[in-house]
Nucleic acid binder design. Structure first.
Lengths: 350, 350
DNA sequence: TTGAAAGCGCTAACAT
DNA sequence: ATGTTAGCGCTTTCAA
């Protein structure tokens, strides 16, 4: 392994200046009116010896890194990792690499991470922001850093953003349960002031209120330890025996909700009809299958990275921010309507 | 937003040299015997104005980037994203950031990505390698880049690696099915010459052969389009009506296998007993619950990043590579043993 | 049409 | 105990 060649080595070898080579390498030969002969000779030599400009030196000089900072709540979350995958694809196609990090919705950690993005000179950021970092994001924005929010936004901050129609999704889902004659519809969610969670909560509340029904809301403090999610759900269900349907606000609520049902022997939809926000294989294969609101992850990711790339390529007007709203989809399955003929369940016999 | 301060600004302001400041900032004041008074004055000023050294300039000078390259098959895969999460935690604790990318098991793409890691001067790489990039990895290693393999390795390449005991896992799982008196045990896997998949296949074959039973093997060409996984499974099951048990070699085989069962109306374990490699909520909540071999992802990730950090901190002896084998766990559920008293299933009535 | 040279911000060998 | 200075490899202004 020989030492990597620098532009100076090439210049010396070819007996021409670094400047000329730099122009050729950066495809500015024509603009700089370098003779085609020279261009050919240099390009041939570069290919022959496999010269690649050092991106770090380039960054130091230009201030550009060709790196995008991606900040999600948790990269292990299937939603965020799927978004990351799509973003990665598009970013690499445009020559950008991705530095990722997880916030855990921790404000202090997020602030550090934002500071890191600034120090590292990432060219732009894609962020699913926790509340409480408004000031830091504003400062980042003020310093000229392009920032695109996705999944949620921060009140009072003007920047590009991509979201699904959270309010409408739960509003319609709740109305569907109401149309099926459910009278006591619960909403199981996480305690969060994030905009997307607020939107989902408000959609539910509006539909229930419109129908003159009573609210049953459980707000769980999110914890990676799933027992701390399952147990409150168990308690909530026990506490409200009249509840005949439930809407889960997020995937972790839905899957842990099913685990709670298992503990309690709750029958779906006989004891409790169910609709879940976010879809997954489990909901398709569960018996009975679970009706779900799904987020078109590919569309969300693509809109997000497109917005950022437009900024990076200066195709977007400074100060003119876009808000893209992606509609969710709905997968109607068996958990959300009463069974006409009630079947005997095997569970009770076992 | 003022321009960021450089070490030169501080030097001018404090009327001392850049060198001194550099030593102080890099905690080498004592070693360089800088007077405590000065150290204090400088540190106070630095804190006051919030000076942070520019990591890019530092990288250019030192050749170190404090960036780790993480290369997985697909960051959207729950296994890999969970590994990524754990690695991220540990890496950030040690001051390293992570650049990630997905190979899709595509050789050409992987080669480009490896080249990118080299160009970008990442300090070390964590790689789940596809076959076919032996030469490129060797060259990377030869140039002094620390590389840790995980999930699988590449034949003939000496480097640190972390894996689970694939062979033993499927060997024991198959023996378990044999002990339950299953006679025609199938193995549903993906066509792959990767070491981990080969290990799982061989474990199955050894156990079947030991018991003098017949092999039933389905090798599917992996495709992100799940229909192209489900359909072959459906065909395979139809083609082998005598098959009474099946072992899935990976999560995508298992989940799509259940979808195939759904299409066919296959009853578990009455028609087909099941054990799956990799565990997930679906297997826990499916009816009947699915027995699974699980990979301790936290342990895998920790062993991997530890190995790399040891290299980066020069705590590992050059040329002395470690191979860490993490034992899988086994979650015995209801899909892997005959039901003593056959229950009538509700499915058939509905 | 091409080249010389300054400088991005930092580190470290070499003074003093 | 602290300072001078030469780069790391690149881009770009200015000059020729």
């Amino acid at each position: 392994m020989l030492k990597k060649l620098s532009i100076a080595d090439i210049a010396r070898e070819l007996n021409i200046s670094k400047t000329t080579i730099s122009f050729i390498v950066n495809k500015r030969a024509e603009e700089k009116r370098i003779s085609p002969g020279l261009v050919k000779r240099v390009e041939a030599y570069i290919k022959e010896v496999g010269y690649k400009p050092n991106p770090i030196a380039k960054s130091l000089r230009t201030g550009k890194t060709n790196i995008i900072g991606l900040m999600v709540e948790n990269i292990a979350d299937p939603f965020f990792s799927a978004v990351a995958r799509h973003i990665e694809n598009k970013a690499y196609q445009s020559g950008y690499k991705i530095l990722y990090c997880s916030t855990d919705n921790n404000t202090d950690k997020t602030k550090e991470l934002l500071e890191m993005f600034r120090e590292r000179n990432v060219d732009g950021c894609i962020i699913a922001p926790p509340v409480g970092v408004e000031q830091e994001i504003s400062s980042l924005l003020a310093s000229g850093m392009p920032v695109v929010f996705f999944d949620r936004h921060l009140e009072g901050i003007q920047t590009d953003q991509v979201e699904v129609n959270n309010y409408e999704s739960t509003f319609e889902a709740t109305r569907l349960l109401i149309a099926e004659k459910y009278k006591n519809i619960g909403f199981i969610t996480f305690a969060s002031s994030q905009t997307q969670m607020q939107g989902r909560l408000e959609g539910y509340r509006a539909a229930v209120s419109e129908a003159g029904l009573k609210e049953f809301i459980l707000e769980i403090n999110f914890d990676p330890d799933e027992r701390l999610i399952i147990d409150p759900i168990v308690d909530f269900i026990k506490k409200h025996p009249k509840m005949d349907a439930v809407l889960f606000s997020a995937i972790q609520a839905g899957t842990n909700g099913l685990k709670a049902f298992q503990k309690l022997g709750t029958r779906v939809p006989e004891d409790l009809a169910v609709i879940a926000f976010d879809d997954c294989d489990l909901f398709e294969l569960y018996n009975p299958s679970i009706t779900a609101i799904y987020q078109p992850i590919d569309k969300i990711a693509e809109a997000t990275i497109d917005l950022l790339l437009k900024r990076l390529h200066k195709k977007a007007v400074a100060g003119d921010f876009k808000k893209v709203v992606i509609p969710t989809g709905f997968t109607l399955r068996h958990s959300s309507k009463p069974v006409a003929v009630r079947k005997k369940t095997v569970n009770k016999k076992g």
